[in-house]
Design a protein around this nucleic acid. Sequence first.
DNA 1: AAGGTCTTTAACCGATCAGTTAAGTAACGA
DNA 2: TCGTTACTTAACTGATCGGTTAAAGACCTT
Lengths: 109, 109
Amino acid sequence: MTDRLSVIFSALADPTRRAILARLAEGEATVTELAEPFDISLPAISRHLKVLEHAGLISRGRTAQWRTSRLEAEPLREATAWMERYRRFWDENFARLDAHLKRLQEEKS
Amino acid sequence: MTDRLSVIFSALADPTRRAILARLAEGEATVTELAEPFDISLPAISRHLKVLEHAGLISRGRTAQWRTSRLEAEPLREATAWMERYRRFWDENFARLDAHLKRLQEEKS
DNA sequence: AAGGTCTTTAACCGATCAGTTAAGTAACGA
DNA sequence: TCGTTACTTAACTGATCGGTTAAAGACCTT
């Protein structure tokens, strides 16, 4: 389980970690702020953050004694890209949508 | 870890299971066929299939002594939908793309 | 009914996971 | 320098995970 996608998906497999990401979508936050909504200890949160950081889903900074976390969604793009391969299996309008996206691509160039 | 998304993401967190899904994208297959590329025992594959089935990522049928698996990508749609919330954090062209998709929606109605 | 093929279940094992408490580290403020 | 706030590391625990081998089902063929 050393590959990138596995690390990303298993980071996302935990509801606490997904909730942390949701919170971070609203802006940077310190460890204590992130811990506040949960009924688990700070060390537990600290390790969740380490998992998210390891997956590249957050980056961390230090300001005085506070360690701030910041959302980095690039891994989500990778995970989404992997799933896109299966889009035709669920999306009836895939062909149409695909055409639109292709058009958009062409517009850009 | 009883929620649907967690079950889906942890099913996807294993490379063997993702490879099985990739194989199934090419069509239905029996357990032995699915096991063939891997260097692990049949019971191990059998349990991977149970995990995928439990996540709703495959459905299974019986034909004589063969149990065929079939890709069901709906959970991938759900997972993608969850990640979409973060799209603006990675996709520079999100606004533009979003506009296009909205236009597509309106066309449909 | 007996034997063969395909698959699952059971029992076990070592590793990893998510949590705990207790102790350690880092930076500030008096 | 001492105390306080913020966070991490260490050591432990019980549960889950991914694999194994051995035995049990399920269905076909003869």
